[in-house]
């Protein structure tokens, strides 16, 4: 059996440190999700309104956020706020802000998609039954839109979690950074630690995301 560098994990509190690093990543994505979902809902509904100016402004924002790699957004925010406003944002705060901006854009697009995916005759047949506009939304449109929306928003959570791996690049100490530190510290005693430690990080991310993906898939199938 070749040396896979797995023994480093058991040394001292290494495994615990990795888990703490993972928690940093998860915490950032959870905070961002909790803020993004309601604000995305709000903007998504606004997007289906007819206000042209509002729509155009938001459209530019949305397209810019969605076309830029998330890492570029992180760089933009992290470096330029320091420079332009003199703020000294911690990497963690900067990443939460970027994830909220990004999450809001993605979420509002999902909301818009879910709302326009409800066929027109659903509105018409509700009207034919004598439902008011409010009742139509409340009893017919929203329940259907929500069913389409929930699996997609759950998927957004896994995308957020995966994207947190990038915050290493703006200096946040999360699971990958901790992994690097452990490998560095054990360079002499376990030269092969990189294999075992990175494999562990890989699996940790998988364990964090996979159940959430499965839940989304299950709901999608159930509500189709």
């Amino acid at each position: 059996m070749p040396d896979l560098g797995l023994e480093v994990l058991l040394k001292g509190s290494n495994m615990l440190r990795l888990l703490q690093g993972l928690w940093v990543a998860l915490r950032i994505s959870l905070i961002a999700v909790v803020i993004s979902i309601p604000s995305g809902l709000l903007f998504g509904v606004l997007m289906t309104r007819k206000n042209v100016v509002l729509k155009a402004i938001f459209r530019v924002y949305l397209e810019f956020i969605r076309i830029m790699p998330q890492l570029v957004l992180l760089f933009l925010f992290y470096f330029s706020t320091t420079r332009t406003f003199g703020w000294n944002l911690s990497g963690e705060t900067a990443s939460i802000i970027v994830f909220v901006l990004w999450g809001t854009a993605e979420m509002s697009d999902l909301v818009r998609g879910a709302l326009i995916s409800i066929p027109k005759h659903q509105y018409e047949s509700s009207a034919a039954l004598g439902l008011t506009k409010m009742q139509t939304y409340l009893y017919v449109i929203i329940p259907q839109a929500v069913r389409r929306l929930i699996p997609l928003s759950i998927n957004l959570i896994t995308r957020m979690i995966k994207t947190t791996s990038l915050i290493l690049m703006i200096g946040v100490v999360e699971v990958l950074k901790v992994a690097q530190q452990i490998i560095e510290a054990n360079r002499m005693s376990s030269p092969n630690a990189a294999f075992g430690i990175y494999l562990t990080v890989f699996l940790l991310y998988f364990i964090a995301c996979w159940p959430i993906s499965m839940l989304a898939k299950y709901l999608e199938r159930k509500w189709r």
């Binding site: 791996s165 490998i183 294999f195």
Partner: peptide
């Protein structure tokens, strides 16, 4: 498919670039 979709590219790259050379 599950492994690939539920892990970040950065972690995959670290594993391939720094991890795999350790096993040759």
């Amino acid at each position: 498919i599950e492994l690939s979709r539920n892990t970040p590219l950065l972690v995959q790259l670290f594993f391939i670039y720094y991890g795999l050379p350790k096993i040759g």
